[in-house]
Simulated assay, not measured.
Amino acid sequence: MREEDSLSSRKKAIRDMIEAAFGREDAPNASSIVDSVYPEPLQIREYFSGKSWWTLTLKGFHDDYTGDPSACLTFMTPVGMKYYLPAYLVMAVESYYEGDVLTLELSSRMRSYIFEDSMYELSSLSYSKKKAVAKAMSFIWQEYADEEAREALDIMGRFWGAEFSC
């Protein structure tokens, strides 16, 4: 099997794991995604309102979102963060370099999201969701040599348990 075929099959396996873990629930209502009156968070709420996580694409962000797409999760409530995180994971696994700041910054931001659990509540993710997050971060670290993904895995190990670390 050619190396490219193997890479494609590994990406697909991670996508399948993320999709199985996070499912296809309806998008949360807009006020549950972002709870703020400031312009940037309001722009985020408007963009994400009514969108299912699995319909988000790099092209959509590029064509339709005027802000910094890598910062969107940062402004979300725990409900919004936990709902839209799988879209970011899939985009980073499948289009790491093409996604520019949206995908290249995810590992760095994941360190904060996990460390700042009182704000984002990612520790309340189910076991299967945590495993999917860890699998995506592990792939990003190994395939793209993203040291911040390894650091995110170390933090997952400290906060979620050793089985989620590198």
Rank of each mutant, 00 (worst) to 15 (best):
C166N: 14
Y127F: 12
I114Q: 01
G50H: 06
A92L: 06
W53C: 10
P39L: 11
V79K: 15
S49M: 04
E143T: 10
G67C: 01
L89Q: 06
G67R: 01
M1A: 14
I44D: 10
M156D: 01
S124C: 09
S49V: 04
I14Y: 02
D26C: 05
L85A: 08
M110K: 01
R2F: 07
S126H: 07
V133K: 04
L125K: 02
A71K: 14
E105D: 15
E19M: 11
Y96M: 11
F48L: 15
Y47M: 04
A92P: 06
Y47C: 03
S52D: 10
A87K: 01
P41F: 05
F61D: 03
S108E: 07
G50P: 06
M76A: 15
H62D: 12
I140T: 07
S107Y: 00
T103C: 12
W160L: 12
T55P: 00
F75R: 04
L122W: 04
M76K: 08
L56C: 13
M76E: 15
A149Y: 00
N29I: 14
E105W: 03
M91V: 02
I33A: 11
A21Y: 06
S108L: 03
S70P: 11
R24D: 13
Y38W: 14
S52I: 03
S6Q: 14
R10T: 09
F75C: 07
D35T: 04
C166P: 01
W54Q: 09
K51D: 06
S165N: 01
S8A: 13
D117A: 04
E19L: 07
R24M: 12
I155H: 09
A27F: 07
Y65H: 05
Y38G: 09
S6A: 11
Y113C: 07
I18V: 15
F75P: 01
R24Q: 15
D5E: 14
E25S: 13
E143M: 08
M76V: 05
K131M: 12
E148Q: 10
Y84P: 00
H62M: 06
I33M: 12
L102P: 13
P28F: 11
D64Y: 09
L102D: 10
A21P: 05
Y84V: 04
S128P: 00
R109V: 00
R158I: 11
F115S: 11
V90S: 04
F115V: 02
W160V: 10
E105L: 03
K11C: 09
D26M: 08
C72D: 14
E98P: 09
Y144Q: 02
S112I: 02
R45Q: 15
